[in-house]
């Protein structure tokens, strides 16, 4: 396989990537999905924390996610709670991690460790990871494709509440001076890397919990407190409404698969 040949020849991962991309032969089996995403410019942008992610960083992240990393304090894998592939868990307590922007996730792990986002479960886990390990595991989850929609069973929701949630997300509220969530979270609530997480298809219970934590001042890790300013203007009904609506929104990936792989020389502009 070309991967192995390139690696054996002693090329760096980056050169290997270029080599494979340039010599792509459609007969050969494509690399596994998340790894292939290393070559996708938009996926790499989503995943980048401090430096351009490469295979090594990705592999290290996968190891940590599987429990093989430095998180001795917990001894368990992230998947136990965050679901297979980081897709979330049906209890609603454990958010989806797949395709969260790498930088956002890295920052959250730091915030858990430092206590600006205190949480009995995540704080010890985050503390057990070094900064490099946090970066690696964030890159790993950012590159993992998320399931197409929130596959957890959803209890029926009041249609009028869903409609109000949709209005708040897309338009906001003039009465309560709440800006539309899509202002910052993207037109499909898919998130805007590097710093704004996607909300579409995230678990409703988790979303409602986070908004309440902001409202009560428990979560105070947003550097400019934009979410705190918004959450205090929301009633409990508003919070439930956006959570119900966002949870049912199909997950639209912030990664565009159509983007040509990096490494192909940029066409000269004519």
């Amino acid at each position: 396989m070309k991967w192995t040949i390139a690696a054996l020849a002693g090329c760096s991962a980056a050169i290997a990537t270029m080599f494979v991309a340039a010599a792509q032969d459609w007969q050969a089996a494509p690399p596994s999905a998340p790894e292939a995403r290393l070559n996708n410019r938009s996926a790499a942008f989503l995943a980048t924390v401090e430096r351009r992610p490469d295979r090594e960083l990705y592999a290290r992240g996968r190891l940590i996610a599987m429990g093989g990393g430095g998180q001795g304090a917990t001894g368990s894998t992230c998947f136990v709670c965050h679901g297979p592939n980081g897709g979330g868990d049906s209890t609603g307590a454990f958010p989806r991690l797949a395709e969260l922007p790498g930088w956002y996730m890295y920052k959250q792990l730091g915030d858990y460790a430092e206590g600006t986002r205190p949480n009995a479960i995540m704080t010890p886990i985050a503390k057990a990871l070094t900064a490099e390990e946090r970066e690696a595991v964030s890159v790993y989850f950012a590159l993992s494709g998320a399931p197409g929609r929130n596959q957890m069973p959803q209890p029926p929701a009041d249609p009028r509440r869903l409609q109000w949630g949709a209005a708040l997300v897309a338009v906001g509220s003039a009465e309560r001076a709440i800006p539309a969530c899509v202002n910052c979270h993207g037109s499909g609530s898919e998130g805007i890397p590097p710093s704004v997480p996607g909300l579409a298809g995230q678990n409703p219970t988790y979303i409602a919990t986070q908004l309440t934590l902001w409202k009560t001042g428990m979560r105070k890790n947003d550097p400019m407190n934009v979410m705190g300013a918004i959450a205090v203007k929301m009633t409990d009904e508003d919070i439930q409404a956006v959570a119900d609506y966002l949870g049912r929104l199909p997950w639209s990936s912030p990664v565009s698969e159509g983007v040509p792989p990096t490494g192909v020389p940029r066409a000269q502009v004519r």
Binding site: G172, A177, P179, A180, N183, C184, M224, N225, V226, G228, A229, I230, K233
Partner: peptide, 28 residues
């Protein structure tokens, strides 16, 4: 930063989005 003016209006922190002049601000 989040700020309440003397008339009681609550303003939110700027996100440096680059759409001020010629645009209205949707972020308060």
């Amino acid at each position: 930063k989040t700020y309440t003016n003397p008339y009681g209006a609550v303003l939110h922190p700027c996100t440096y989005c680059g759409y001020c002049e010629r645009f209205g601000c949707g972020y308060y």
